[in-house]
């Protein structure tokens, strides 16, 4: 604080509270809708205070799904989303940490070629090459499998870059000392580099978990059976055309459930989240 200006402090708080209220409003209405019956929602205007059907609605979507639209239980979809998010986060971290170890700590022919090969994937999001990628995956008979759902999304350079940047800041003396003590590269990686990378791994995990959980276009193409839907796809499939036909109370309960894990991760692991976000974009 540079100087004391009470009206400006008041204004700051007012703007922030207003901003938070506007940003939270859709979430609040979603929560309210998920505790009402369909009749209460479609009687315009819908009540803006929570109703008494919270347990009923959540129990129904988790175990049975909706009647129109997607009929798979949301519990199953959440499980699929969890597998997808974990596989993408862990897979990306695992393959990229060893790849960046090779790039930083070894000198070998074609090193720059491989480096640029990975680098160029930074530029093309999955959305622009979606149809050919889908063809490749279906040629490999990976439609409706967890492998087909996750493996293509593991190919990304962000994590490799993050680890490369981090490894470059690790003092050379550590590698020297390890060599003098007779440790081979793998021993050095396991005993020295990996423990040092803990924070980077945690930060990256948070970002990639959210990325994996929120994937939309890819699971939309690659899942054809209801039992393979992820939670985000499930919501989309539950919305039938026409406002009145959609079982909004169940859609909103599903939306709350689909938002819960990534939001919880962001709020609870805020420190790593902020770090991961700022570092992956550098």
């Amino acid at each position: 604080m540079i100087e004391n200006r009470p009206w400006l402090t008041f204004l700051s708080h007012a703007v922030l509270i207003l901003g938070i209220a506007v940003i939270a409003f859709p979430l609040y209405v979603t929560f309210v809708a998920s505790t009402l019956t369909l009749d209460e929602i479609i009687s315009v205007p819908m009540p803006l205070l929570p109703g008494s059907h919270l347990w009923e609605n959540y129990h129904q979507v988790l175990t049975a799904g909706t009647e129109a639209g997607a009929g798979a239980p949301v519990g199953r979809m959440m499980f699929n989303s969890l597998i997808m998010a974990l596989a993408i986060a862990i897979g990306k971290i695992a393959i990229s940490i060893i790849a960046s170890f090779a790039i930083v700590y070894f000198r070998f022919p074609l090193k720059n070629f491989f480096f640029w090969m990975i680098f160029i994937t930074l530029m093309l999001p999955v959305e622009v090459r979606i149809i050919p990628t889908f063809k490749v995956v279906s040629d490999l008979h990976m439609v409706d499998t967890y492998v087909g759902l996750t493996l293509p999304l593991i190919a990304s350079a962000t994590a490799t870059f993050l680890f490369r940047q981090f490894f470059l800041t690790v003092p050379d003396e550590l590698a020297e000392a390890a060599r003098i003590d007779g440790a081979g590269p793998l021993r050095f990686f396991w005993d020295v580099l990996l423990p040092l990378s803990k924070t980077s791994i945690a930060a990256l995990f948070v970002i990639q978990f959210i990325y994996g959980w929120n994937q939309y276009l890819w699971p939309l193409l690659i899942t054809t059976q209801e039992s393979m839907y992820t939670a985000v796809i499930g919501i989309k499939r539950m919305i039938t055309s026409g406002d009145a036909l959609t079982e909004w109370h169940l859609v909103m309960a599903t939306a709350m459930l689909a938002m819960l894990p990534p939001v919880a991760v962001v709020v609870l692991m805020q420190r790593w989240f902020v770090r991961g976000l700022v570092e992956t974009e550098k």
Binding site: I23, P26, L27, V29, T30, I210, W213, N214, Q215, Y216, V232, I235, K236, I239, V251, A255, A258, M259, P262, V263, V265, V266, V267, Q270, F273, V274, L277
Partner: peptide, 14 residues
Amino acid sequence: IWPYAVAPAVAGVL
């Protein structure tokens, strides 16, 4: 910061 964690498709639905 929490809206960052909401999937674009879910944001659209809300």
